[in-house]
Amino acid sequence: MPKASVTFQDVGVTVTVPAGTRLIEVSEKVGAGITYGCREGECCTCLTRIVSGHEHLAAPSVLEDQVLKNNLAPRHHRLACQAQILGGTIVVRPA
């Protein structure tokens, strides 16, 4: 299975993950500062800054896109409960 590398910059942890993993599946386990509310892509609590490698995440769904717009999310920000890792190297930190 293709692998990817995701770094949670705020806690200095880099994790090797299988392609298809969502950020939520990893971030809590390493104690990263991304926090969650609804975990279903609606509340925007888990807004996350993609420091680099945003192109290695699956494109946002229509729902996620709408929530990002409604909450005035800056460029290269995603919902960690939704963002799915495709491959490559990604660096993230809490928004």
């Binding site: 806690v11 200095g12 942890v13 880099t14 994790v15 090797t16 993950v17 299988p18 993993t21 599946e25 990893v26 386990k29 390493v30 104690g31």
Partner: peptide
Amino acid sequence: LHLLGRALPRVLDMASLA
């Protein structure tokens, strides 16, 4: 160390996370 932002960088495999 985490409070001070001085925890050492770590590299893990997802399979090792509980």
